[in-house]
């Protein structure tokens, strides 16, 4: 099963490599990885999506918790949560396709953020499924470049991941 694990990590040099290294060292899987500082400059928030059965996920969270630089973590998939990814896509936009792309962008509630005579740069947010569907819809038109951030997520309701 797919799990989304969010981690509060010491904002220290090398901390990220310990997390990433752990996954390769122990033969765990990383599907996406997203990391940025938080409102507390001493902490980064790292979100990783991974796939494994319960035993593997238990090992992943235990080993992550063992890392000295990991301050706190939560498996978001254990409860209700919001999951988002941001994607920037350059698509061909020539002739009749130009309108077609615009319509699809509207349907997906995406935005065109840059324009040239021959292409659109589209920004879209959503869960992984929505982004995949958008790419599928754009494939016939011609996708030139894709930049995805990887999943970021947060729990629904009162639950808060903080110190």
């Amino acid at each position: 099963m797919r799990h989304i694990i969010s981690i509060l990590l010491e904002n220290e040099p090398g901390a990220l490599s310990r997390v990433v290294g752990l996954f390769s060292q122990r033969n765990f899987n990383i599907e996406t990885l997203n990391v940025a500082p938080t409102e507390d400059p001493s902490l980064s928030r790292l979100t990783v999506t991974t796939v494994g059965d319960d035993r593997v996920i238990e090992q992943i969270t235990k080993h992550l918790n063992k890392l000295i630089d990991v301050v706190k973590l939560v498996d978001l998939t254990e409860g209700n949560h919001i999951e988002r990814e941001l994607m920037l896509v350059k698509v061909k936009a020539l002739g009749a396709a130009r309108d077609e792309v615009k319509r699809t962008v509207d349907i997906f509630r995406a935005q065109i953020v840059d324009v040239t005579p021959s292409l659109y740069t589209v920004q879209i947010t959503g869960d992984a499924g929505k982004l995949d569907a958008f790419l599928q819809a754009m494939a016939p038109v011609g996708i030139l470049e894709v930049a995805r951030t990887g999943v970021s997520g947060i729990a629904r309701g009162d639950k808060v991941l903080s110190l």
């Binding site: 090992q59 235990k62 063992k66």
Partner: peptide
Amino acid sequence: VDPSSISK
């Protein structure tokens, strides 16, 4: 003492 050793 190491939780990751349990049920590994």
